[in-house]
Simulated assay, not measured.
Amino acid sequence: MAPKPSTELLAGVAVGLLVGLVLASGAPAGSFATPNDGDDDRDDTPGYTLSSAGPSCYEGPTANAGWVHEVANGDYYGVTLNATVVHDTDRRVSVNVTERTPGTYELAIVTTPPDADEDDRMAESLSNCDRAETTLDLATGLPTEYERAVVTVDDRELLTFENADTTADLYRLPNPVNATAAS
């Protein structure tokens, strides 16, 4: 009879599989972030996890992209977002989740100029592109008493959804989200 695998071995295999999936996805190193790890004293900012890929040259809409999913999860509402953001080649894309007003949360997609380290790399990799794209996958938890959430791109409202029930809801976002200067 073979010995049972230890918990540590199983955990190590699970972590290895997760790292392998991340590396196999082609996402650039450092593309996973947890911007609010709970070390600060701000109560208005829920923690979130962000995975992004890009920027790269925009080559058309991505199948099955452009949605927000919300579902009650016992002590909170799990909210996930998937978006392909088309933007100018001299901009980078980030996301932030904040409590805009009491009970209203904002999932803000923001384009900004790249920092000095990114500028040369982006200019070289996007030199033959008319527009760039960045793919975003975000996950956050909103409190059970939240009233509504708003998805914005550069302060322009894309979607508002209400906390109406505990069933899972899927909302469509534009595919792609247009964050170019011409939008």
Rank of each mutant, 00 (worst) to 15 (best):
L136I: 06
T84W: 06
P55Y: 03
I109L: 04
G103M: 03
D88C: 08
T89W: 01
D137C: 09
G54K: 09
G66I: 11
V86C: 02
R121N: 15
N128W: 10
G54M: 11
D130F: 05
R131D: 15
S52G: 02
N82I: 03
T134H: 03
G60S: 05
D120N: 13
N82M: 01
T135A: 07
P55W: 10
T101V: 09
N82Q: 11
H69S: 11
T49M: 11
P55M: 13
E59F: 07
L50R: 13
A108C: 01
Y58L: 01
A132C: 04
A63K: 12
G78H: 13
V95A: 06
I109R: 04
S56Q: 15
V71P: 07
P61G: 03
Y77K: 05
E99Y: 05
Y58E: 00
Y77I: 12
S52C: 02
R91C: 01
I109G: 00
R121I: 13
A53C: 07
E70T: 08
C129F: 11
R121A: 15
D137A: 08
V71I: 07
Y76S: 13
P113I: 10
V86I: 04
N96V: 12
D137M: 04
T80G: 08
T135G: 01
S127R: 12
E124F: 12
G66M: 09
P61I: 06
S125E: 09
V85N: 04
T135F: 02
A53P: 00
T80Y: 09
V110I: 10
S94E: 09
M122L: 14
N73H: 14
N64K: 12
D130C: 06
D137I: 10
A108P: 01
D117H: 11
G60P: 05
L81F: 00
V93W: 08
P113F: 14
V95Y: 06
P102C: 00
E70L: 13
S51Y: 11
C57P: 09
G47V: 02
V85W: 05
T112M: 06
V68E: 00
A65F: 12
L136H: 02
L136A: 00
D88W: 08
D88Q: 10
D88V: 06
W67S: 09
N64C: 01
A63E: 09
I109A: 05
T135S: 05
T134D: 07
E124C: 06
T62Q: 10
I109K: 04
E133H: 08
T112L: 06
L50G: 09
L126H: 09
R91E: 05
T89Q: 03
T134L: 05
Y105M: 02
P61K: 11
V85E: 04
G66H: 13
V110A: 01
L107R: 01
W67M: 00
N128E: 15
Y105T: 01
L107P: 05
N73P: 03
T104K: 06
P114L: 12
V79H: 14
T62M: 07
T49F: 13
A63Q: 14
Y77L: 06
G78P: 03
C129V: 13
S125F: 02
G103Y: 10
N128A: 09
N96E: 05
P102W: 04
T111E: 04
D130L: 12
R100F: 13
A72E: 14
T62G: 03
T134P: 06
D120W: 14
V79P: 14
D120A: 15
V93R: 01
A123F: 04
S125Y: 04
Y48F: 13
T111L: 02
D75S: 15
D115P: 00
V97E: 04
